[in-house]
């Protein structure tokens, strides 16, 4: 080691670089590399076999993968829209509260405090066709005399998952939009009233443009959330019945650990990440535009 005298700043930063490399960069590169191999957990030596883009080419022809991909995008789109609308309503209601607003805000965040696994179990129980609360309630109210197969029918299962997602995360939108409403200057609203706006017009032309950036922040966060959704689906249906609720990450984990095809799973994961990046870029663009529109100084 004689003669090698690194500058102090290099020396001081070195531990951080070593740790980062060990926990982030090496696994990332390794997983990227393994996506170019037919690596199977059961046959470790396959990691040294380089097969180029064959995994990716195979994916492009894989119906099951694209079905999961499409289902993820569908879940994402529907959930974001429903959460946006419900969150907006919640935020508007809570903002109107003159007393106990703090308490309401806290209550509103309760669903976010539960682990998604628990939310999954809770809704799995509620939607159970035999003993579940939902069927029980529907039957007691006389709305139906049948046991609706919530988690067994493909479409209903998807809806049930959607409901669980929306229940657990609408408050993300509500909180962000409420923050926007509370940060909003009141004078433009008064000016709008004087300018002749009905309450709806005030909302449409003044309030809405102002809270849009806040909604986009929530959308960015939630799109990343749903693009990597796993736990609720894993618990409620595990991708079933007959893979009708299979989404990207349940498929990826099945491929990686049940089928032990790690190479292929990593290839899927990289495509899935592209999806997330795509949505993030899209929402950030919208956010920047909306911010510029309202002349935000943040």
């Amino acid at each position: 080691m004689r003669g090698w005298k690194p500058a102090p700043h290099v020396l001081l930063l070195l531990p951080a670089f070593v740790v980062l490399a060990a926990v982030v960069i090496v696994p990332l590169l390794l997983s990227l590399y393994s996506s170019f191999t037919p690596f199977r957990l059961t046959r470790p030596e396959t990691i040294y076999e380089f097969i180029g883009l064959r995994n990716y080419i195979r994916l492009f022809a894989d119906r099951e993968f694209w079905a999961a991909f499409g289902r993820t995008v569908l879940l994402l789109t529907v959930a974001l829209n429903v959460e946006m609308v419900l969150g907006l309503f919640l935020a508007l209601l809570v903002e109107k509260a003159t007393r106990g607003q703090r308490l309401l805000r806290t209550i509103m965040m309760f669903p976010m405090m539960f682990s998604p696994i628990l939310v999954g179990f809770q809704f799995k129980f509620m939607f159970n066709d035999n003993i579940g609360l939902v069927n029980n309630a529907l039957q007691s109210l006389g709305l139906t005399d049948q046991a609706i197969p919530w988690l067994i029918d493909g479409k209903l299962a998807f809806t049930s998952i959607l409901i669980a997602e929306v229940w657990s995360s609408t408050s993300v939108f509500a909180i962000f939009i409420l923050a926007g409403l509370m940060a909003m200057p009141k004078e433009p609203l008064e000016a709008a009233k004087v300018d002749g706006c009905t309450p709806w017009q005030s909302f449409r032309y003044v309030t809405w443009p102002f809270i849009m950036p806040f909604a986009y922040i929530a959308m960015t966060i939630r799109s990343l959330d749903i693009a990597r959704a796993y736990d609720i689906v894993k618990i409620m249906t595990d991708g079933g019945p007959a893979k009708r609720t299979e989404i990207l990450w349940t498929l990826i984990s099945r491929t990686a650990y049940s089928d032990a095809r790690m190479g292929l799973a990593n290839a899927m994961a990289y495509v899935a990440i592209l999806l997330s990046i795509l949505f993030t870029v899209m929402f950030f663009r919208q956010l920047a535009k909306a911010r510029q529109q309202i002349g935000a100084e943040w």
Binding site: P188, K193, V194, D195, G196, C197, T198
Partner: peptide, 29 residues
């Protein structure tokens, strides 16, 4: 309500709509 009183008001903090151009602000009513 204010919209039925046929009044105009100028506020201390200007209260112009930040997301509209000058022309849109003026033509809004």
């Amino acid at each position: 309500p204010p919209r039925q009183r046929n009044i105009s008001m100028v506020f201390q903090s200007y209260a112009i709509y930040p997301h509209m151009t000058v022309a849109e602000n003026m033509g809004f009513s």
